[in-house]
Amino acid sequence: MGVLMSAIGFGIVTASILAVSSVGFTLQFSVTNVFNLSFGSVMTGTGFIAYALNTSGVSIWASMAIGALCGGVISVALNWLIFGRFIRHGISRFGMVIVTIATGLICDNTIQAFVGPTFYAYNAQPGKAFNLAGMLLTGQELIIIVIAAVMMTATHVGLKSTRLGAAMRGLSVNASLARACGVPTRRVVAVAWFASGVMAGIGSVALFLDTSTFAATTGSQFLIMVIAAAVLGGVGSAEGAVVGALVVGLATEITAAYWNPELKDVVAFVVLILVLLVRPQGMFSQLSSERTAVG
């Protein structure tokens, strides 16, 4: 029982880190229909901005907040400078994926040119460990769980109870109809990119705190797990991303605790495939496959 409770606790921490990033990834996709594989690079970039602040004496949590805002600006800038232009030129969905991959590679290699092929760590202590019902969690991990919970609640409330949220949901269902109904498409799309970048920033600092060290490619390295959680929950569904992150987090930790740690990713992706066999659209997604990109 002790081992199971520990694994569940560890799984919740992993899920919290993944959930913030996965919701950011999927929120932007649901509004714009751009499957943005440069998301990991935005994570890395904001992680390094937070690092620069943190090593200048700013607390890690303030660095996370400022880094997240910068992430939002970077994300909006990428859409304005690159992605939006391609969308307006009518690029195919597959072509857009390639553009985002190329953008990610450019960003990663540019970051590496500046920071070099070495590792960095935040100046932050994990804090005292607390035993909560058999789950041993540090102060830092508890803060990450709380931040994730607040972000998820805010996203849920924002999407369900505000005019902006209604506009985003409208765009995600039918962009042309939303536009015809007077939804300011460009502004809503910009907000979606901004929110996505903010979540990439928060997710990256949480991730880099968790891995203790990070390098120029760490964000992209973990993108596959972020996408796995999003796909499992149903791409485009914020609630789905949270559940997907929980499934991935718990599956990996329970596999490591009870079976072979070498196979933790294998089990997570087997679960992913099994779920998609039953529900190809993921657990929660209701998006149509016929949507077009919105820039």
Binding site: V3, S6, A7, F10, V13, T14, I17, L18, L136, L207, D210, T211, Q221, F222, M225, T252, E253, I254, A256, A257, N260, P261, E262, L263, K264, D265
Partner: peptide
């Protein structure tokens, strides 16, 4: 034997 490049090794560590 641990899978390299993981987000966490908490269960293995425990």
């Amino acid at each position: 034997t641990i899978a390299i490049g993981q987000l966490s090794y908490r269960s293995e560590v425990q």
